[in-house]
């Protein structure tokens, strides 16, 4: 199955409000897909629909080729892992007890449960604290355990809802490493996140959702080409006050000048040569690289956290 998850024209309303209004996307095998959107875009509704917890008004969701029937427990849904945004574990239980509980709930074969728990503890770096109540864990540790509890049954498709919210950079890095390991094992991953820089670097493809609709989907380069383009804005910091600048300057101040270039390799060298020939000293060069933030703003017209 090359596309373990397919969402087609998903529509779901809550009263008069349409949370999903035709959202569609496909998840490929062993792909790391980022699902981006401002608050209220429909991301959580979409994830709950994929998990079978919400019934769509229209549209279809297919998991491993089979339609997802809300409420029904099938072999396909058994191969799905959900990691919620909340740290949904039992704080009075130890890490091992939490894994044991969720392993049984998600029907991990009893003969394999103990081994999988041990591996999960090693994987999350919690082996030496396996017998301590989770309430004493840091946020990052709880997040890692939260993920482990959701993948103990070794799903093929994992949905993560903001898995790194509220954790320190080290823990966040650790979590990303864990997810990349899963991807290397062939797991297909969908995650929602507000960490655009990380989504840009880690994820294979990006789907942008707004107002319940898919407004853009593709790799970062594809989205870049479809939005702000690949041109870079280069700002030269000048050594002194310059009155005459080479042509093509888009903006300037007393001590800086900004140009747009298509190729860093060719155009930057050319611009530096122009400054040298004009006798203008350049003390610094900064390149404004288009980011997912600028792509996102281009498509949605709003900041990621805007209501």
């Amino acid at each position: 199955m090359n596309k373990p998850l397919i969402v087609e024209n998903a529509v779901r309303s809550f009263g008069d409000r349409k949370a999903l209004n035709g959202a569609s996307f496909e998840l490929r095998k062993a792909e790391f897909l980022a699902l981006l959107g401002p608050n209220g875009a429909g991301k959580t509704t979409l994830i709950r629909s994929i998990a079978g917890r919400l019934r769509l008004d229209r549209g279809e969701i297919r998991l491993h080729g089979q339609p997802v029937v809300p409420g029904a427990k099938t072999a396909e849904t058994a191969r799905l892992g959900i990691i919620p945004q909340n740290i949904a574990i039992y704080e009075n239980l130890t890490a091992r007890e939490n894994l044991d509980l969720f392993g049984r709930i998600f029907e991990v074969p009893s003969g394999q449960l103990r081994e999988r728990i041990n591996r999960a503890l090693e994987w999350t770096g919690l082996a030496d604290r396996a017998k301590e109540p989770v309430s004493g864990f840091s946020g990052g540790m709880q997040r890692r355990l939260n993920i482990a509890c959701g993948v103990l049954h070794k799903p093929d498709v994992i949905l993560l809802d903001e898995p790194t919210v509220g954790v320190d950079p080290q823990s966040r890095q650790r979590i990303w490493e864990m997810l990349k390991q899963l991807q290397a094992d062939g797991v297909s991953i969908v995650l929602t996140t507000h960490q655009l820089d990380e989504a840009q670097q880690i994820c294979d493809r990006i789907v942008i959702i707004d107002n319940g609709q898919t407004i853009a989907a593709g790799t970062f380069d594809e989205l870049l080409d479809a939005s702000v383009g690949r041109r870079r804005r280069v700002t030269f910091t000048l050594g002194g006050i310059v009155t005459a600048l080479p042509s093509g300057c888009e903006s300037r101040s007393d001590r800086s000048a900004t140009f747009s270039v298509d190729s860093i390799t060719a155009d930057l060298t050319s611009r530096l040569s122009q400054f040298r020939e004009a006798g203008i000293e350049v003390t610094d060069v900064s390149i404004d690289v288009p980011t997912l933030q600028s792509v996102f703003l281009h498509f949605t017209g709003k900041e990621l956290r805007e209501d």
Binding site: K73, I82, P84, I105, G150
Partner: peptide, 14 residues
Amino acid sequence: EKGTLERLLTGGLT
């Protein structure tokens, strides 16, 4: 409130 219930219900629990 914490979401644990939702997590249990997405598993094999009804």
